[in-house]
Lab assay of single mutants.
Amino acid sequence: TFVALYDYESRTETDLSFKKGERLQIVNNTEGDWWLAHSLTTGQTGYIPSNYVAP
Rank of each mutant, 00 (worst) to 15 (best):
Val3Trp: 06
Thr41Met: 11
Thr14Ala: 12
Gly43Lys: 07
Tyr52Arg: 07
Phe2Gly: 02
His38Cys: 10
Asp7Ile: 02
Thr30Leu: 12
Val27Tyr: 12
Ala37Asp: 00
Tyr47Val: 05
Tyr8Phe: 10
Ala4Leu: 04
Gly32Tyr: 08
Thr12Ser: 14
Tyr6Thr: 06
Arg23Thr: 15
Tyr52Gly: 06
Pro49Leu: 08
Asn51Glu: 11
Gln25Ser: 09
Thr1Val: 15
Gln25Pro: 01
Gly32Cys: 09
Gly43His: 11
Leu40Met: 10
Thr12Arg: 14
Ser17Val: 04
Leu40His: 07
Thr12His: 14
Tyr52Val: 06
Gly46Pro: 00
Glu13Gln: 11
Thr30Asp: 13
Thr30Glu: 11
Glu13Pro: 14
Ala37Met: 11
Val53Phe: 07
Glu31Cys: 13
Ser39Trp: 01
Arg23Asp: 08
Thr30Ser: 13
Leu40Pro: 09
Val3Thr: 10
Ile26Ser: 05
Tyr8Leu: 03
Arg11Leu: 12
Tyr8Lys: 02
Thr1Gly: 06
Asp15Thr: 09
Phe2Tyr: 15
Glu31Asn: 15
Val53Gly: 03
Thr45Glu: 08
Ser39Glu: 01
Glu22Gly: 01
Asn28Asp: 15
Arg11Asp: 10
Ala4Cys: 07
Gln44Leu: 14
Glu22Ser: 02
Thr14Val: 11
Thr14Asn: 14
His38Glu: 11
Val53Arg: 01
Lys19Gly: 05
Val3Arg: 04
Ala4Asp: 00
Thr1Lys: 06
Thr30Gly: 11
Ala4His: 00
Leu5Met: 09
Phe18Lys: 00
Ser50Ile: 06
Tyr6Lys: 09
Lys19Gln: 10
Ala37Gly: 05
His38Val: 15
Phe18Ile: 12
Lys19Asn: 07
His38Asn: 07
Ile26Met: 05
Leu36Phe: 12
Tyr6Leu: 09
Val3His: 06
Phe18Ser: 01
Phe18Leu: 07
Pro49Cys: 07
Pro49Phe: 06
Gly32Gln: 13
Gln44Met: 14
Asn29Pro: 14
Gly32Pro: 15
Glu22Ala: 03
Thr30Ile: 10
Tyr47Gly: 02
Tyr47Glu: 03
Gln25Ile: 15
Pro49Tyr: 06
Gly46Met: 01
Thr12Leu: 12
Leu36Ser: 03
Asn28Tyr: 09
Ile48Ala: 03
Ser10Asp: 03
Val53Thr: 04
Ser10Met: 06
Tyr6Cys: 08
Thr14Tyr: 15
Glu31Thr: 14
Ser39Lys: 06
His38Thr: 15
Arg11Phe: 10
Asn29Ile: 15
Asn51Trp: 15
